[in-house]
Design a binder for these strands. Structure first.
Lengths: 210, 210
DNA sequence: TCCTTGCAGATAGTGCTACTATCTATTACA
DNA sequence: TGTAATAGATAGTAGCACTATCTGCAAGGA
């Protein structure tokens, strides 16, 4: 198919497709002449993945680039590509405050308590977790808030267990990673929405009846 | 205190404070001369709230304006201010695809099944939830993925229940909202990090041992 | 064959957001 | 007294994600 057809099929304007090509987010079409190229289903799939990540996941284009590099890497094992994709979805942790070191220790303890032995030492979410814990520790006077973290970890474990089990191991890597990434982003957004809805309900119950 | 002191106390540059004044996010100081005004603790609290919302919550300034209107409204109840804060934290839903209507019906059913009767009809997260469901339905062939949504809702319910119980109802409104926002955002980030860590562990277990 | 349409590649421009800088006239305070 | 700070107004900036325009060339129907 030609670019205009790719555009109509995906609903993405031609200039935007060109932009994605320039940015290396979309692989070039099969060149047939200096100014002619053919696109196929792999392009359609890639564009759809990019749009889901941008629109649903709010992933910035710079992140998409790293992520796409992981998806396209031919030399790495599946697990390495998946790890790279997962890392690309981690936000940049906020700058450390005075309690960060202590928070890091708590984070390590939480990960150990959850039994996540296969998490690598340089996983960026170790730092993100520490950053969140630092804020929680620094904000309230309640030390007992920390007891809830292991509870959260159990919840996360159950969710992740389901999602990983749901992956289709036989799928080609593109599809496998797309499934992982879409699962992470979309299910993550869904959980966030559900959480806000639940909070609206419970705060209404609490503050309207007092 | 004068503006420069407000600036050093909050860590926000003077031009930014002036910007917030212009935008109506920060109430004017107590005027003592045509070019002199005094600021007090209420200004410090407000600036802190604004920064928490912007930096931690990523709330756009346009949203802050709505939120501040709710906070400052003298006639509104706490619950209205809290609802406004919660709405400000909801992302703008992606544009609807062909399955959105069906997704909306599923979303409504999920909310009902969870027992969240106090969620208002115009809660933006109804649409966000529908958007996420639409992607899930549209992406995979598995219809049985939908069964997990109620599971997620139960998790969200437990989390929200804890967080709302932890709020200090006696605190001044700016502080109460800051607490709500920090709770929502930070606990949300923490849960997301834990989720990615758990996914790394479980996918390592699954894909390295196969 | 002509001629309209589409294409690739390059460069430049747009719209939005959240500040940031500069200017003027005035005031505080060491 | 004079330096620094202030309010208010206006203009400028940086980053992001596109979007528009231009050039030379190719494709495919009339």
């Amino acid at each position: 198919m030609r670019m205009s057809e790719l555009s109509t099929v995906t609903g993405v304007p031609v200039p935007t497709l060109k932009y994605y090509l320039r940015e290396g987010l979309l692989h070039a079409g099969h060149r047939q002449a200096p100014n002619q190229a053919q696109y196929d289903d792999s392009h359609v799939a890639r564009v759809r993945l990019l749009r889901v990540l941008r629109e649903v996941g709010g992933v910035p284009v710079a992140r998409l680039r790293e992520l796409v590099a992981a998806v396209d890497g031919v030399t790495t094992e599946n697990i390495d590509a998946m790890r790279a994709a997962a890392y690309a979805l981690s936000p940049v942790p906020p700058r450390a405050g005075p309690d960060r070191q202590r928070a890091r220790e708590i984070a390590t303890a939480v990960i150990e308590a959850a039994g996540w032995a296969r998490v690598s030492d340089d996983a960026p979410d170790r730092e993100n977790l520490a950053a969140a814990i630092e804020v929680i520790v620094g904000f309230g006077t309640h030390e007992d808030r920390l007891s809830i973290i292991d509870e959260y970890a159990r919840v996360a474990d159950a969710v992740a267990r389901f999602e990983v089990a749901d992956l289709d191991a036989a799928a080609p890597r593109d599809a496998l990673l797309a499934q992982l990434v879409v699962g992470q982003v979309v299910f993550g957004e869904m959980l966030a929405s559900l959480r806000r809805l639940a909070e609206e309900h419970h705060s209404a119950v609490r503050f309207e009846t007092e």
